[in-house]
Write a protein that binds this DNA or RNA. Sequence first.
DNA 1: GATGAATGAGTTTTCATTCAT
DNA 2: AATGAATGAAAACTCATTCAT
Lengths: 195, 195, 195, 195
Amino acid sequence: MTDFTPRQKEIMETAMKLIAEKGIQKCTIKNVSKRIGISEPAIYRHFESKMDILLGILSCFKQSTKATSDRIRSSKSTAIEQINSIFFGHVHQFTADPTIAAVIFSEEIFQNDNRLSEKVFSIMKLSQDTLRVLIEKGQKKEEIRSDIPKEQLALILMGALRLMVKKWRLSGFSFDLEKEGADLWNSIEKILKGG
Amino acid sequence: MTDFTPRQKEIMETAMKLIAEKGIQKCTIKNVSKRIGISEPAIYRHFESKMDILLGILSCFKQSTKATSDRIRSSKSTAIEQINSIFFGHVHQFTADPTIAAVIFSEEIFQNDNRLSEKVFSIMKLSQDTLRVLIEKGQKKEEIRSDIPKEQLALILMGALRLMVKKWRLSGFSFDLEKEGADLWNSIEKILKGG
Amino acid sequence: MTDFTPRQKEIMETAMKLIAEKGIQKCTIKNVSKRIGISEPAIYRHFESKMDILLGILSCFKQSTKATSDRIRSSKSTAIEQINSIFFGHVHQFTADPTIAAVIFSEEIFQNDNRLSEKVFSIMKLSQDTLRVLIEKGQKKEEIRSDIPKEQLALILMGALRLMVKKWRLSGFSFDLEKEGADLWNSIEKILKGG
Amino acid sequence: MTDFTPRQKEIMETAMKLIAEKGIQKCTIKNVSKRIGISEPAIYRHFESKMDILLGILSCFKQSTKATSDRIRSSKSTAIEQINSIFFGHVHQFTADPTIAAVIFSEEIFQNDNRLSEKVFSIMKLSQDTLRVLIEKGQKKEEIRSDIPKEQLALILMGALRLMVKKWRLSGFSFDLEKEGADLWNSIEKILKGG
DNA sequence: GATGAATGAGTTTTCATTCAT
DNA sequence: AATGAATGAAAACTCATTCAT
C-alpha cells in the first residue's frame, strides 16, 4: 500500500477499473497501458509481471482489510456497533470506489492461478474470522441471539451484503447503495438481536 | 435443453467443467475439444461460435430455473415449504453436479460480453422474483414475518445460500453441503418465521 | 527422422538454414515461417514449441550419427578403412548439405538450454566413442600405432576435421572441402600408422 | 586493452562471463548491468552500443594474440619450443580464466553480424599464421617433419587443442586441463617430430 | 557518472475461427 | 460429422536504446 510508487498504484487502479468494467479477460497489459497513456513495456518497469500487478491489488486489499479489522476490534464499542462499523465500512468503501466492489467479492476472477486464488481465499477468511469473533462476543454479552450459531449469522450477514453489492454492480450502480445498505442493516440488526 | 443434441450437451458440459475447475480463461475451444477428444474445428459443427456455447449454457440454466420455479409455484404447499423446496433444490443440484455451482453463482464470469451479462442478469432476476413472490405469499398468510421487507428476506436467504456454496467451492468441496445446508435452513427458517 | 512429417522436416531444415546463414539469434519463428511462406502460428500446428524444433534437429543428428556408426562398425573392413569411412562420411555429408556443418560442430549454439546442451553433448560423446573403439581395434591389430593413446588420436583426428570444416564455413565455403579433406586424410593416415 | 577504462573492462568481462555461462542469447544489456550492479543506461556511458562491447572483447583478444605471437616469434628458442609456448600459453590462459575459452574458440557466437564475424575471422587467421610460420621454420631446420604440409600440421595441432578445450568446457571443467594438455602435447610433439 | 522512466520493434505463444478435404 | 492445415489478431514479455534529470 504505502510501499507502492504512484505509478504502481496507477497501474493497479487501472487494472482494477478494467476488471470492474469489462472483466478480467479485458484486463490486459495492452489495455492497462493504453488507458494510462504509456507503452506496454513501460508497465514492466513497475511490475515484473502481470501476475505481480494482480498480487499487488490483492495485497492492498488484505492489508486494508486487516487494518480495518484491527481498528474495529480494538474499539470499545458494543459488538453490534462494531459489526455495524464493518458493514458500513464496506458500503462506504464501495460507494467511494465502485471498482473495489467488482474485485473484492469476485473471487472466481482469480481462479486461474493458485497463487492468486490462495491469496483471495486468505482475504476471505480474514474478514470472516473478524466477523465471527465479534458475533461471538455479542452472543456472550447477550447483545446478539444465541439460538443461531455464530457461523451462520456471519454467513447471513456477509451473504446479504455481498449479494446486495453484486446486484448493485450488475445493475450498473443503478440504486443508492448507502440507502439500500442502511435499510438492509436495519433488518440485519433485527435478526441479530433476535427480534 | 431438449433442443440440444447429445454432442452439444457434451460440449456445454465440458465447457462448464473447465470453467469450474480452472476459470473461464482456461475455457478455450482448444481445451474443450481436447477434453472431449475431438478436433477444434469439430466444435464448429455443433456451435456457430464460442459465444453460442456460453449462451447455450446460460439458456439451459434459465430454462431449468424457470421449470423449477413453475413447478414449485404451482404446488399446493405452504410458502415456507415452497421456499424450502427452492433452497434444497439448489443444494441437491450442486451436490449432484458441483460444476453447476461454479457457473450459476459466478455472474462476473460472463461480464466481458453484453449478451452474456444480460442473460446472466435475467436468470438472477427470475429466481429472485420467484422467491419474492413466495415470501410475499408467506407474509400474507402470516407464515412469514412482515416486519422485514420481502426483498430483504429474499436477499438474506439467497445471499447466505450463495456464500455457503461459494465457500464450499473455494474450499475444494471440503465439507458436506447437504448437511451444512440443512443446518443453514434451520436458521433461515427461524429468521423467516420471526422467531 | 522418418517419424517427422514433410512439413516438420521443412521447418527443421529451414531453421537449420537460418542458423547456418545468420546464427541462432536470427533463427526465430517469424523468420522460419516467413521463409517457408506460412504464418507464424502455423508453425505451432507442427511443433509444440520452438524448443521442440531444435530438439527435433538434434534428434535427427543423433539418429543419423548412430546409424552411420552402426553401419561402419558392422562392416568387415580394416580399422583404418572404417575410420576413413567416418571421416569421409562427414566430409560428404557437409558437401551435400553445408548447413549441417554449421550446426553439428557448433555445440555452443545450444548452450542456452539444458535439454539442448545435454542432447548436443550426448551426440558428441556418441561419435567420439565410435572413433575410440575403432582406433583401439586398429591398435590391437597393429594397423595403428600404439605409442599414442587412442583418446588422443581420436582427439587429433576429430579436432583436425572440425577445424577444417569450421574454416570452410567461416570462409564462406571458399575452398573445395572434398579435395582439402582428401589431403588432410593422407596426413592423418600417415600419423595414425605412425609413419 | 590499455585504452579501456576499468569500467569498460568490467563490462566486457561481465559480458564474456554471461556468454561463457549461458550463451550469447543471455548476454543482454540488462543481464550485464544487473550483474555489475548498475543500471542499464549506465552501460551506455561506457560503450556506444552493445556491438561495441562485443567488438571490444574481440579487440582485446586480437591485441593479446598479436602480443603473444610477437613475443614468441622474437624469442630465440627452437621452433618446437616456440610452438610449445603457444600451446601452453593457451592452456594457461584458459586455466586462469575459463570464460576466455568459451569465447575465443566459439566463432559462431559472433556470426550474426558481419563486423563481428570478420573480426573473429581475422583473429583466427592471425594465430594460424603464427603457427604456420613457426612450423615452416621448424621444417626448414629439420626439427619438424616435412612429409606433412605445414598447413595440415597447424590444423592438427590447433584442432586438437580446440577440441580438448571444448570438451573441457562442455564437461563443466571436469578434468585438469593442464594435465590433459601436457599429455596431448607429448603426442603432438611426437607427431610433429615425425616419430 | 549514473539513474528512473520510457519506447519501437520484436520475441514466443495462444486464441477463435475458416477452409479444403 | 470430422479433420489437418492454416491464419489474423492479440496475448505476455524482452531487447537495445534514448532522454530528462
